[in-house]
Simulated assay, not measured.
Amino acid sequence: MLNLVTLGELVELCLSGPELYLRYSPGPEADALHPSTDHESGLLMPGVSANPLTPPPWWTLPADDWIARRVCQYLRETEEGARPWVLHGRVVDHGPDNEPLLVDIIPVAWLDRRLLAESHDRYRTRMRAGKSTH
């Protein structure tokens, strides 16, 4: 797997190929042993939950802003030992928060803590409550 150090590297990767997703977990090997579970019901889900990194068509701000926002969405998970990683897979359904559930997972890259810090800085300065400086 790649190790991405900058937000620019992640943006370039996301915009240059197939749909990529972000997941916070111990990693692909651990996820293969423990399927995603709906925490409220306890039900096993039919795939691994992940968040899409490609900006939707309505997003008219820079892709960097969208991707930084997605990286920051689950940063709190790192406090519990989860690591952020990028993956590709086939969407088979959606989870309780409408997140894609993926199978046929292909691990792509780990996100370095420097990328997390850069994403957090960008998100904090550009995306506070709809106050983008674009």
Rank of each mutant, 00 (worst) to 15 (best):
M1H: 13
M1Y: 08
L2Y: 14
L4M: 12
L4Y: 04
G8H: 02
E9N: 08
L10T: 03
L10E: 01
E12K: 05
E12P: 02
E12N: 09
L13M: 06
C14D: 02
S16W: 02
G17K: 04
G17H: 07
L20M: 08
Y21H: 07
R23P: 05
P26I: 00
P26C: 04
G27H: 05
A30R: 05
H34L: 13
P35G: 10
S36V: 08
D38W: 05
G42S: 09
L43C: 11
L44M: 14
M45A: 14
M45T: 15
P46S: 13
G47V: 13
V48D: 08
A50M: 09
A50R: 00
N51V: 13
T54M: 02
P57R: 14
W58P: 03
W58G: 05
W58E: 14
W59D: 04
W59N: 04
W59R: 06
L61Q: 13
L61M: 11
L61W: 10
P62K: 12
A63K: 03
D65E: 10
D65G: 06
W66K: 03
I67C: 01
I67Y: 00
I67Q: 01
R69S: 13
Q73I: 00
Y74I: 01
Y74P: 01
L75P: 04
L75V: 12
R76M: 07
R76T: 09
R76Y: 13
T78A: 02
T78R: 04
E79D: 15
E79T: 08
E80G: 12
G81F: 09
G81Y: 06
R83K: 15
R83Q: 13
R83N: 08
P84V: 02
W85Y: 12
W85M: 04
V86Y: 05
L87Q: 11
H88K: 06
G89R: 00
G89Q: 03
R90L: 02
R90M: 07
D93H: 12
H94S: 12
H94K: 14
G95Y: 09
G95P: 05
D97G: 07
E99L: 11
P100D: 04
L101T: 12
L101K: 11
L102D: 09
V103I: 15
D104M: 07
I105Q: 06
I106E: 02
I106H: 00
V108D: 00
A109G: 06
W110K: 07
L111K: 00
D112H: 15
A117I: 11
E118A: 09
E118D: 11
E118H: 07
D121A: 14
R122C: 03
T125E: 13
R126Y: 08
A129K: 14
A129M: 12
G130S: 10
G130L: 09
G130E: 11
K131Q: 14
K131Y: 11
K131I: 08
S132L: 06
S132N: 13
S132W: 15
T133K: 14
